[in-house]
């Protein structure tokens, strides 16, 4: 199934859900609404637990307001739900952490993640936040692949890593920023001392 054909649609274009299949409604932080099948939601541990706890009926889904996901924008959420719809019904991998598994990026996922770096990192955050294990695996693999064969200087450019000078400057700025706080705490400490308190907290 291609990315374009994935069954995630904005609410205006949505087909009326079939009675047996329940489609939940979610809303992104920029007020875009999505209908996602129950089976696709199972890919996300967080959303799955949420809808289970809510115990919505088909009527509730239609009558009650859409579930707001306020930390994810519409563009990212669309990618997430497209991925979930494409991989619905697939087993969720269990990561016991002992042996690093080889992650292959399927063709659909590769096309889905053919996006700019900013959106890719947002996708990683969203996958982590919604606890979608396999999407997190493939998106992390995509980021890892970005490092392949790159020199340290190239890596700094690709990942927008600070140079040693910038790192030092940031440290200095942090130290300077810490001074007023130290003064403030010192004053507070002295005040408490005058009041005879033993503990600072």
């Amino acid at each position: 199934m291609s990315v374009e054909n994935a069954p995630v649609v904005d609410v205006d274009e949505a087909a009326i859900p079939v009675e047996k299949k329940m489609y939940y409604r979610f809303e992104s932080n920029d007020k875009k609404e999505f209908r996602v099948s129950e089976l696709a939601i199972q890919q996300s541990e967080t959303l799955n637990r949420l809808v289970e706890a809510m115990g919505y009926t088909s009527e509730d889904v239609e009558n009650k307001p859409a579930i707001a996901i306020e930390n994810i924008d519409g563009k990212t959420l669309k990618l997430v739900f497209q991925w979930c719809e494409h991989h619905k019904g697939e087993a969720i991998p269990v990561d016991d952490g002992s042996v690093p598994k080889i992650v292959e990026i399927p063709e659909f996922d590769a096309k889905l993640m053919d996006i700019d770096n900013g959106l890719l990192f947002k996708l990683i955050w969203a996958a982590d936040y919604l606890n979608i294990v396999q999407l997190l695996n493939v998106s992390c693999k995509k980021v890892a692949n970005m490092a392949q064969g790159k020199t340290p200087a190239q890596l700094r450019r690709v990942y927008l890593l600070p140079s040693d000078e910038e790192d030092e400057a940031a440290k200095r700025a942090a130290q300077e920023a810490q001074d007023p706080r130290a003064r403030e705490v010192e004053e507070e400490f002295e005040e408490r001392k005058r009041q005879g308190g033993n503990s600072f907290f």
Binding site: F121, K122, W125, A126
Partner: peptide, 8 residues
């Protein structure tokens, strides 16, 4: 949500 490696 952030958009580069350093913010992950």
């Amino acid at each position: 949500f952030h958009t580069n490696w350093s913010d992950l």
